[in-house]
Nucleic acid binder design. Structure first.
Length: 159
DNA sequence: TTAGGTAGTCTCG
DNA sequence: CGAGACTACCTAA
């Protein structure tokens, strides 16, 4: 039962429409939207910047985002999301590897990845299971896994 | 292949 | 608050 999100921009991309929510000048959340909604042009400067960097990434995977981010979560979730941002483009880590660094457990890491509010930019798609692809955006199969596969292929990773 | 272990979060009451 | 259930998992046998 979420309040209806108010997007500052809805932009199209190779993985479908992305809805952006800002909090001040920082990026607060990215949603994968169904393709039957109207695109919405970014108006303020910081939102334009986000859209621009996303488009750049989709054109050229080897691109480091430089954006003010404002992910909201528990201290543990924040520490996991911070680890994700240290994974270089074209590499992957397993849930267990992240867990080891944080002295935690693989399932807990999976839980935190599932709650990542900034997919694509906080690269939770670069985390896979020791045996298998893991999940994405709460799904272990379906459209979101297709997106995960696309992102990894885009970065030159072969699952 | 599965059984059991594990860590963090959520949901009731 | 507390117990129990629910995971985008992992390891040993």
């Amino acid at each position: 039962m979420n309040p209806i999100p108010h997007y500052q921009a809805i932009t199209s991309s190779p993985i479908g429409l992305l809805g952006l929510i800002m909090e001040g000048d920082a990026l607060y959340s990215i949603d994968f939207l169904a393709d039957d909604v109207e695109p919405l042009a970014a108006e303020d400067r910081s939102t334009i910047q986000v859209v621009s960097q996303l488009q750049h990434y989709f054109r050229q995977a080897d691109w480091c985002f430089s954006l003010p981010l404002k992910p909201v979560g528990t201290p543990f979730q924040l520490s996991v999301w911070q680890q994700l941002q240290q994974i270089p483009v074209g590499e992957v880590r397993t849930y267990g590897e992240i867990a080891k660094v944080l002295k935690s457990g693989p399932r807990a890491v999976g839980n935190a990845c599932r709650k990542n509010p900034l997919p694509v930019i906080v690269p939770c798609h670069r985390v896979v299971a020791a045996s298998g692809p893991g999940g994405y955006a709460g799904q272990t199969q379906g459209r979101n896994m297709t997106i995960k596969g696309w992102l990894l292929a885009h970065e030159g990773v072969t699952i």
